[in-house]
């Protein structure tokens, strides 16, 4: 299109941040009664080649006729060509996605936002704490660390779930638990007769870990209520505020800092976050 000043308009058809790219569902794994792991492959080769993300970023899942929902990417950036999303059935879009089958086509926009500072974390110990579905973005980070394991010191993963049956990625966790180079501890709020592990909130696990405060990065993701308590535990271990990273869930609608829905303090979670360090988060009103 030619504008009135004679210059050419941006091609609305191609350079459009709101236009989803089609992706095929290549695998669906039932994780729990409410959560499934979807593996997606972008159909257009060019989009597929261009797609690269960092751990902690998210995409907008777009199902025409239903709408869009922001979902964090669970797969590591190194898993090229495929995107993994761990999705809870929570609303219209995630409900529609849960009803889909392998081979069905959905839309994807993104990746959006600022993820974890992977390069900056290299050379340090990493302490990752997840509650429930909060493991989804952290799994991307853990897998990425796994791919470059030699570049990191001790890696500790603390994961809390309400009940044993709600534990996500159980097989993957068992694998990490059996490796020498990952310390992984699971805990549940309420045990059942099958459970032989820890019982209690994830903060309880801090009693049994050693942290080198001068050389540790923290990464936290979980339900909103969890942050305050986990951050307090990390601060007790003397980890600096700007080395504790948190990922926030907000209502990211457009993903490109325009629609206003994901405002947190003076920032937008979709472009300035969703990952913030604790110093930044302390300066965001009502963030924690």
């Amino acid at each position: 299109m030619i504008g009135i000043d004679g210059h050419v308009h941006p091609e609305v058809e191609t350079v459009n941040p709101y236009r989803p790219h089609r992706a095929r569902i290549t695998s669906i794994v039932d994780l729990t009664d409410n959560e499934k792991l979807f593996e997606l492959r972008l159909i257009d080769e060019e989009s597929r080649a261009e797609f690269s993300h960092s751990a902690g970023q998210f995409v907008e899942v777009s199902i025409f006729g239903v709408g869009e929902a922001p979902i964090s990417i669970s797969s590591a950036p190194s898993k090229q060509g495929f995107i993994e999303l761990c999705v809870r059935r929570a609303g219209d879009v995630t409900g529609a996605l849960h009803d889909m089958r392998c081979g069905d086509i959905i839309g994807i926009r993104g990746p959006f936002g600022r993820g974890f500072p992977f390069e900056q974390m290299k050379g340090s110990d990493v302490l990752l704490v997840a509650g429930g579905l909060g493991i989804a973005p952290l799994k991307s980070l853990i897998n990425h660390i796994h791919d470059e394991r030699h570049a990191f010191g001790n890696v500790t993963i603390l994961y809390g779930s309400r009940t044993p049956s709600e534990i996500l990625f159980r097989r993957q966790f068992e694998m990490w638990q059996h490796r020498d180079d990952f310390d992984m501890v699971l805990t549940v709020d309420q045990a059942d007769e099958t459970w032989t592990g820890e019982v209690g909130l994830v903060t309880k696990l801090f009693d049994r870990i050693d942290v080198d405060p001068s050389n540790t990065y923290g990464a936290i993701c979980g339900p909103p209520v969890m942050y305050k308590y986990v951050i307090a535990e990390m601060r007790k271990k003397s980890i600096d505020a700007d080395r504790i990273y948190v990922s926030f869930e907000r209502r990211m609608k457009c993903g490109v800092g325009k629609c206003g829905h994901c405002g947190v303090g003076h920032q937008y979670a979709c472009v300035d976050g969703p990952v913030f360090n604790y110093w930044e988060a302390m300066n965001l009103q009502e963030a924690i």
């Binding site: 929570a90 609303g91 909103p224 209502r251 206003g260 829905h261 405002g263 003076h266």
Partner: peptide, 29 residues
């Protein structure tokens, strides 16, 4: 429901938090 997310959490449930946010964003955000 402007800041509400899918499973029921609403980051600005009260009217005062919403009025405040509008001014906060305009004059500072």
């Amino acid at each position: 429901d402007f800041a509400a997310v899918a499973h029921g959490a609403n980051f600005r449930e009260s009217r005062s938090s919403r009025v405040k946010y509008r001014y906060y964003h305009k004059q500072w955000g």
